[in-house]
Design a binder for these strands. Structure first.
Lengths: 168, 168
DNA sequence: CTAAACTTTCAAAAATTTTTGAAAGTTTAG
DNA sequence: CTAAACTTTCAAAAATTTTTGAAAGTTTAG
């Protein structure tokens, strides 16, 4: 197989998987493209390689930067901005975990604890509050666990945690 | 606050969060509705409470069943089918983890190991294969970890794992 | 078997999300 | 300051996803 063919396979598959994860196809493809490209790419490079418009590149690259998994690189003597993806896959995964925790889990926990605190006198109210409490407690545990993972270093993930999980 | 109001808040918030997770709004809302409803509901009940069409209810309920987090309940003397959500939130979460692992992670791992095995002689080929290998290895670790979590029991999650994670 | 009571399917419509590309904005070289 | 080289914005168009609801299919009571 040719390198280019393999890269294209990877980019398009990554894009398809992205959509299942609530990320849009193009954003995932840009990420994949930057991952497989040794050197940083300019907006024009991305436009040309993925066949998408300038506005589209701009929007998605900025979104990827807001996730902290793509960075702007400036080259001397060039006015254009270039972009690279974080090449360390562990760092990338932790970064995504961190952001999702902040953007998605934390707001849910806030809503749940708010509903749990409400005074509901009607029949069934206690049961509803118990459900909110159950979900809330489960979410808090997950939250703590993720926080721990995010703050740990790579050695911890591949080392102690894996050992702990594999044993028994 | 009234019970009904609190329930509606929960349902609509759950729906909104669902969309961020690649699940559609209605499916998440039906799930939330079934969670807060003590008794099983029929398709008509769901239609009426969420104001959606029969076809829509049918599709989404079946999808929820395929995820294994909603079950069909038959009542004696009734021809209608009724549905409930798994009320144990831990079981629900594990079930979702299990399905996502199977539907999303496993196919990615297959693609990666396929690309890693390719013969690519061109310049840059080795580097590309290294990237595939890195992602692959990371994915395999995650896969093992999730598998372990899925197979463990609840006590393990709230007990040993949490203790392990919280300490130092 | 028949008809009533349901569930399922699916093409068309509606809603939502994504993309385009031109116009506006910004920065820098000279 | 000016103009060229860029980046950003945003309304309209395109693409995609979701929803509707009527028709088809299935099951069960009698």
């Amino acid at each position: 197989m040719e390198l280019k063919e393999a890269q294209e396979k990877f980019i398009s598959a990554w894009g398809a998987f992205g959509t299942q994860w609530g990320i849009n196809r193009t954003m995932a493809q840009i990420h994949a493209l930057l991952l497989v490209s040794e050197d940083p790419l300019s907006a024009d490079d991305i436009m040309q390689q993925l066949n998408i418009s300038r506005g589209n590149v701009n929007m998605n690259v900025r979104e990827l930067m807001s996730w902290g998994i793509v960075h702007k690189v400036l080259k001397f003597g060039e006015r254009k901005e270039f972009f690279t993806a974080e090449k360390d896959i562990y760092k990338t995964a932790i970064q995504i975990l961190k952001e999702r925790r902040k953007r998605e889990l934390v707001p849910v926990l806030e809503l749940l604890s708010d509903l749990e605190k409400q005074e509901i006198k009607e029949e069934g109210g206690e049961q509803f509050k118990k459900l909110m409490g159950d979900i809330s407690r489960f979410g808090e545990s997950t939250n703590k666990m993720l926080d721990k993972m995010v703050k740990a270093d790579e050695h911890w993930f591949t080392g102690s945690l894996m050992k702990f999980l594999i044993k028994k």
